[in-house]
Write a protein that binds this DNA or RNA. Sequence first.
DNA 1: CTGTATCCGTGTTGATACTG
DNA 2: CAGTATCAACACGGATACAG
Lengths: 222, 222
Amino acid sequence: MERTKRRYLDACGTAHALDLIGERWALLVMRELMLGPRRFSDIKASLPGISANVLTQRLEGLEAAGIVARRELPPPASVRVYELTPWGLEAEPILSVMGRWAARSPLHDPTLPFSTASLVLSLRTMFSAERAEAEGFRARIALLPPPDAFVAEVSPEGLTIERGDPSGATASLAGSAESIAAAIHGGVPFEALESEGVLAVGGDRAAAATFTTLFPLPPKAG
Amino acid sequence: MERTKRRYLDACGTAHALDLIGERWALLVMRELMLGPRRFSDIKASLPGISANVLTQRLEGLEAAGIVARRELPPPASVRVYELTPWGLEAEPILSVMGRWAARSPLHDPTLPFSTASLVLSLRTMFSAERAEAEGFRARIALLPPPDAFVAEVSPEGLTIERGDPSGATASLAGSAESIAAAIHGGVPFEALESEGVLAVGGDRAAAATFTTLFPLPPKAG
DNA sequence: CTGTATCCGTGTTGATACTG
DNA sequence: CAGTATCAACACGGATACAG
């Protein structure tokens, strides 16, 4: 095939990182795998604009680099899934740092599509331990972007967000990743989103409201 | 011209970062500007393989995004230089995190060319405050990759590396960025590099030797 | 139904030559 | 020195066809 990959002739670690994950779509494919194994079609559906052949190439390249592994689920599922290797998982700080930096961009357009993986990673990135501390906040908030279910746990140790059973949570936010993000990052009041029918808030509404204030965005640059 | 820039239709911060700095060469151009203003030809000379037209396009794009600014030095210099804006400067953690992650790659080839900016940023990235603490190390080490002069200061507060006057330093390492990196990251003994005539160690050799141990590389993945 | 391979129009990249 | 012009090679994205 193409043994003549276009590489940077540069010993710098950053340049090598770009050789590995600098091609178009590569980091976003990795983003979609950060929360666990996914199937080809699910990845493709979460990345508006990627074409099947490009996704195939990226998965091959990331596999060859030792960043992604493919696996067959045992019968009766018997489907092929892609997952990050342990080293691939360690790339999450790259996504976080890039996201935090870009949040200061004056050109950012928050009205574009927003995947579930983006939502969860953005919350991990933007969580303010200081604010949670100042509020003395402690809760388990269920995040329910269909068909997934995550539980965010805020404690003095910090924030964790994992797939899990939402029953027993202090409060719940059900709706598309875009709608949940509108409430948390966009500051849109629950009532506005509920009256449009795109968000359902359950349980302790005050706790849910406080939760949405724990992820402040940095000021715009320029 | 390019009113149809190829963007990701994705509200995720990481995706927006890729819209801004995800094009080929963009991050490496920024790396070359991290230590201060540079001229077009100097940037081009530090990036093996980039062509003039692509460098022009990247500088234009980064300027339009508010990441890079162009400036004319006053007479008698009267040359045009490019520099990072304050927000552009804040992208250094992106380079660090990518470099640290890629250092674990089994495919990394340390024999490729290595720019002065790469050397300084890699030292800032890989510095181990724990080791300096454990050694009780405190010194000013001059790094002299011609035609530049940097002073690295190790103190209980951490490491700083700035352009500066090398006189009065505890020790000095003079040679190409590649040679200095061979001593620090590659673990090559001073004597081997000196006998090849590619490195000159001055001042307190023991302090210089200890200094080279403060930048440990992480273990390889896979 | 889930992926993979092939073709094709278009835009991006890279090398050389050239201009102010 | 600091770019621009030109052109060839490649990568991307879309559609479609194919394989398990």
